[in-house]
Design a protein around this nucleic acid. Structure first.
Length: 396
RNA sequence: UAAUUUGACCCUU
């Protein structure tokens, strides 16, 4: 079945799960590679239930099949199942290898599971994987995420072999923990740099409000991709320099780099802050032209932009067009209503989102409380204020 | 022919 497996692999690489399924169903003989590929294919599309069905149905499972399934669980927040799979691998004779450990370490980073982290690191050492480059890189990222830069640096220093990802991981760690000096020193010391290294440092300076240093590094960047440009644009927005954000967006276009959905979200956020309706409309036109109308982040930005520009009707129209609204969508619309004194609408949406299973966060309550103050709903406002603790939120 | 690591988003203002 090697030829068909290769075909399945090819389809999955370009995200064509349906075609992969077609090939899979037409096969007369399947091996463990065939089945594992399908498990992974379903997981990458977020279809964990289907992946699990395939996983349970397959005649034999090896460490790759298990790792694929475990990775799927963990990527979608199913911690119990993910960690459960990991311990079953250990207890049921499948065994674990460095890849399985990397998956677990990565999950600890994403879920801020600091306690598990230390245990896993011990396991890594006891199994003799301390010189695995991928594992080392994952550990650096994990400790960085937890804010333990001493530990991250220790792992880095102990690594016998480092690749460019090792350097980039530690640099990003320092950037995330406000250590731009350390990050920049490493950047200058590393043997080779790629777009990731450059962008991390540019972001590091932006995060400290060091705009000139940031731009100076950015100008020196040999190849600027859409991510790097977006980093600069959003950095200016974060620092309240929205005109500059627009300026760099214009330069991005002049230099022929195509913006993506994240770029347009950031630019829309700039136009929203400036309440610049004309520019906002232009970007909306670009969104349509680029066929990004159904991107949630872009739609959220459009909702906010229309609301901030005083057009609540179009904000609401855009909001209703969102197929799969998320918490940010809700917050954008509630805040939009709140900013214009639409108390009833804001509170109705707030109730609706809770019925829909959304957990409000601090931004939600800011909108809700401000609208209560705005329209004089003192009792309701007090009630909502008290309900914050139910969601584990503390008033600022 | 199958599983793993590093850079930019949207809501708060």
């Amino acid at each position: 079945p090697v030829a068909s497996n290769a075909l399945i692999s090819g389809y999955l690489k370009i995200g064509e799960l349906d075609d992969a399924i077609r090939v899979f169903e037409g096969m007369s003989e399947r091996d463990v590679v065939t089945w594992s590929s399908m498990v992974d294919g379903y997981c990458k599309k977020g279809r964990i239930d289907d992946a699990q069905k395939v996983f349970e149905k397959m005649p034999e499972r090896n460490v790759v099949s298990w790792t694929a399934m475990m990775s799927g669980y963990l990527k979608f927040g199913m911690w119990e199942d993910g960690f459960g799979a990991f311990s079953r691998m250990r207890s049921e004779g499948v065994g674990i290898n460095s890849t399985a450990l990397t998956v677990i370490v990565d999950a600890c980073a994403a879920g801020s599971r600091v306690k598990e982290v230390v245990q896993i690191h011990g396991l890594v050492l006891s199994m003799g994987f301390e010189h695995d480059v991928f594992l080392g890189n994952s550990l650096i990222a994990m400790y960085s995420h937890a804010g333990w830069m001493d530990a991250a640096k220790k792992v880095f220093d102990f690594m016998r072999e480092k690749d460019i990802v090792s350097w980039n991981s530690l640099i990003s760690g320092y950037v995330q923990n406000d250590g731009i000096e350390e990050a920049y020193a490493l950047f200058n010391k590393m043997p080779k740099r790629d777009v990731v290294s450059w962008t991390a440092v540019v972001v590091g300076f932006l995060n400290q409000g060091m705009m000139e240093e940031s731009i100076s590094v950015f100008e020196d960047m040999p190849v600027k991709d859409d991510v790097a440009w977006t980093a600069v644009i959003s950095g200016f927005v974060r620092n309240g320099e929205c005109e500059n954000a627009f300026h760099w967006f214009t330069r991005m276009a002049q230099e022929g780099t195509k913006p993506n959905s994240l770029t347009l979200s950031s630019v829309l956020s700039a136009t929203a802050s400036l309440a610049a309706m004309n520019q906002g409309l232009q970007i909306h036109g670009l969104v349509v032209k680029m066929d990004l109308e159904s991107n949630v982040s872009v739609q959220n930005s459009l909702v906010s932009m229309y609301a901030k520009c005083g057009n609540v009707d179009d904000a609401y129209r855009t909001f209703l067009d969102i197929d799969e609204p998320n918490l940010v969508s809700m917050n954008s619309m509630i805040t939009g209503f709140a900013q214009h004194g639409f108390g009833e609408e804001a509170l109705n949406l707030f109730k609706k989102m809770q019925l829909g299973g959304f957990k409000p966060n601090g931004v939600t309550f800011r909108g809700v409380l401000s609208v209560c103050v705005h329209v004089g709903l003192v009792e309701e406002g007090w009630h909502y204020f008290k309900s914050m603790s139910f969601y584990g939120l503390e008033p600022e």
